[in-house]
Write a protein that binds this DNA or RNA. Structure first.
Lengths: 188, 188
DNA sequence: ATGAATACTAAACGAACGCTTTGAATTAAT
DNA sequence: ATTAATTCAAAGCGTTCGTTTAGTATTCAT
């Protein structure tokens, strides 16, 4: 009986994610979302309840997005130190002025909103797990010493990536190169 | 002839800085500033022109504030590696949930507003210069090898501090300790 | 074809926004 | 005392905010 939706919720969600990524939570208005998502406010609310929930879903979508478009090489089952080095070295020249949606969110919203903070933590758990797997593989391959503390180094590179997201907005390419090169010297 | 101001512009500016530090630029309303600064909107505008200019002046004030309350040990003429280690190690337990005003600003506003971006850059020049001086002193004292690239390591620690500001909002103390400890390894 | 259910457009809601103006209160030199 | 300058509290400017409502269009089982 019902009429069919004229849009894909998944596709308009990805568009919303890009808007939040570029402008942040507060500065993104529903009028802009309406324009960029290509559907009107009624549809936004009927599909995503309200602005905050749309934002929360955008963060989840972002995790999916970066898995496929940013971290794909590090998420390969057997990715090791070589992949980590290649990733960071390539990242520093291909800097994204929008930084990282989750870092931006942590900075903007911080711990002020619990549901958002929770989503941020889930994202970092995901990145940390990925890094732990990479370091474990590096050990197996003999790329790093067998007595490297994997958990500690995962937290180190997580911190480096957080710094990199800010540095990408404020430093120039050669300064970022310094940062990455020295960070990579810490592990062997 | 004129009546005297009932408030100190410098003191209300510092109060404004703390509000922006805690809430960010967009989320801080003039009504809240009015309340926290203890003066009314007319006075805010007659002293600081408009919200954006008040924000710019708050960033400048922040530089002055951290010089006296955060980085004082590193700004001492002869501060070296020992001071840097002590600073980072102490910072990791005394984490500030507000993070760093300038990192928050970089994440929130990014390069969208030129006058704000310029103020952000000035702040990082200041931090980088401080770090360069620390590393130069460390060389003189023999705490690090004479062929350490001071410029590069200054950029490295700048990146670490940017990461630390985000980590302070998202990671727990032991994870931050991992980050800092490894960052400090092998500066020599 | 009809009826029930859902999707869509467009307009509008009250509240809050950044910002400006008004007018009375206060000051200090004349 | 008068006068000119300045401060301050309060109200109000037009705009935009997130959200909702009304009314119309579309779909599909009967």
């Amino acid at each position: 009986m019902p009429r069919n939706k004229a849009y894909s919720e998944d596709m308009v969600l990805e568009k919303a994610m890009h808007v939040f990524w570029g402008k942040g939570y507060e500065a993104t208005s529903l009028r802009l979302l309406e324009k960029e998502m290509g559907i009107n406010q009624f549809s936004i609310y009927s599909s995503f309840t309200n602005k905050k929930n749309l934002f929360l879903e955008s963060i989840r979508k972002y995790r999916e997005y970066v898995s496929q478009n940013v971290y794909q090489s590090l998420l390969k089952e057997d990715a090791g130190l070589a992949e980590l080095k290649a990733f960071l070295m390539e990242k520093r020249k291909n800097i994204n002025l929008r930084g990282c949606l989750v870092v931006n969110t942590a900075a903007e919203v911080g711990a002020r909103d619990q549901s958002i903070a929770k989503e941020v933590n889930l994202y970092y758990d995901f990145i940390r797990d990925m890094l732990k797997n990479v370091l474990l593989n590096a050990k197996k391959k003999g790329e790093i010493s067998p007595d490297v503390d994997v958990e500690a180094y995962a937290n180190f590179f997580l911190g480096v990536m957080q710094g990199l997201s800010i540095a990408a907005k404020t430093l120039d390419e050669s300064q970022i190169k310094d940062f990455i090169s020295i960070a990579l010297m810490k592990v062997k």
